[in-house]
């Protein structure tokens, strides 16, 4: 493992130190509940796109899209991304406005190992929607 992690470090790609405790799905649920105020997010409206298998956990492309007219009266306020097997479950929060035109965003994230990626959308009327995808990671973003 040391040789592998040194190699990855040399490539400037290692994201997480080996041997570090990871977040648990329970911690992620807790973070998620804080966001939604304890209510269970509904399914539908939001779709999360992530690869089924990621060869390199250091850059995993993910996209989210939420159906919404994006008007002053009805729009998507935010989408938060969680990864339940990383050292910290929070990944990023996208904040939209009616000026965004649509609630669509793409980024690249680090995944330490095979785990669930969860996206939770918060709408201007207070309702929440979520979607999740399991991503199998062959070389984790932890260099080991």
């Amino acid at each position: 493992m040391f040789a592998l992690s040194a190699g990855a470090a040399a490539a400037g790609l290692v994201a997480f130190a080996p041997g570090r405790a990871f977040a648990t799905p329970e911690e992620t649920e807790k973070a998620l509940a804080t966001l939604t105020g304890g209510t269970e997010p509904q399914t539908g409206k939001i779709s999360l796109t992530a690869p089924e298998i990621a060869e390199n956990g250091n850059t995993v492309p993910i996209s989210v899209e939420v159906e919404s007219p994006m008007t002053e009266g009805e729009y998507v306020e935010s989408v938060t991304i969680f990864a339940d097997g990383n050292p910290n479950p929070e990944v990023a929060t996208f904040l939209f406005t009616p000026m965004s035109g649509s609630a669509v965003a793409t980024t690249r994230i680090r995944l330490a190992k095979t785990q669930n990626v969860i996206a939770v959308a918060k709408l201007s009327d207070g309702s929440t929607y979520s979607d999740r995808k399991e991503v199998k990671v062959t070389i984790g973003g932890c260099g080991g």
Partner: peptide, 21 residues
């Protein structure tokens, strides 16, 4: 138009794609 709060789990050379009216 758009904002993103970023944690360390976002990859090096952070990339964002989004829309604007």
């Amino acid at each position: 138009v758009f904002e993103c709060e970023i944690e360390p789990a976002v990859s090096a050379n952070p990339y964002f794609e989004f829309t604007a009216k």
